[in-house]
Design a protein around this nucleic acid. Sequence first.
DNA 1: GTATTCCTTGACGCCGACGTCAACGCAAGG
DNA 2: CCTTGCGTTGACGTCGGCGTCAAGGAATAC
Lengths: 136, 136
Amino acid sequence: MRIGELARRAGTTTRTLRYYESRGLLPARRAENGYRSYDEGDLRLLQQIRTLQDFGFDLEETRPFVDCLRAGHPAGDACPASLAVYRRKLDELDALIAQLASVRAEVGAQLARAELEASADLPGGPPPRCELGGPT
Amino acid sequence: MRIGELARRAGTTTRTLRYYESRGLLPARRAENGYRSYDEGDLRLLQQIRTLQDFGFDLEETRPFVDCLRAGHPAGDACPASLAVYRRKLDELDALIAQLASVRAEVGAQLARAELEASADLPGGPPPRCELGGPT
DNA sequence: GTATTCCTTGACGCCGACGTCAACGCAAGG
DNA sequence: CCTTGCGTTGACGTCGGCGTCAAGGAATAC
């Protein structure tokens, strides 16, 4: 199949496929007229790449999976190098999530404090407090 | 004070300060010789910007805070526009964290599955299973 | 034949927040 | 005077993953 059909079947663009080829990730055979020629195996390689990309893997990180498939393994993650990428990505995700959670907490606290101070400065004095028990 | 001193005191670079000025975020007065001249107020504005940048706010998002300080408020988040940015950022963070958590779960599951299949293909047959009860 | 669509390569554009270099001016110390 | 170390503007480089356009050749539909 030619580049347009592969792109359509994988839900991507021809530009993307040419880019992958320029990176050496998905080289293509050539027909006599110079057109790139792909087969079903290439579609599977491409699907593997896209799946990982959707997960936030960058291109270089998908390379071990592609190599693994090309080496004849039924799954891209059947090779140690792929598993290593998985583990490294998990660590990255954990670190990133932790950092974002920390930022979220800080921003949330800042918002709460700022809202409190804003309401204290409003006309009519401070709004009703929430106090427990005791007759008024 | 001049640009180098301000940069040092804020823990950033002169290039960054010129960049902020080019974006209209932190304009500077000029001395007679053309040198940029800053005061303590500028340092506070800059600190506000850096704090938010460290939280992952992009430059445009810091603008309401800077404007708020420049308007004479004691805190950059004492203005409604700043609070709106806080809230938007919280929503963004929540969405991003949720997405990353989802990805983390999927990647973790893939890793577990791949490790299981790998161990099943190792020499010596599959490793000991973890089964409950029953005589062997 | 011709119109349309596909393919080719090459090259520039984009985004954000600066880094880095060039080429120069100005100031202060010895 | 000379050097060193500030400052100035301008402009190009960085990173990733492509988008977009240009100028042409090839295949297909009618």
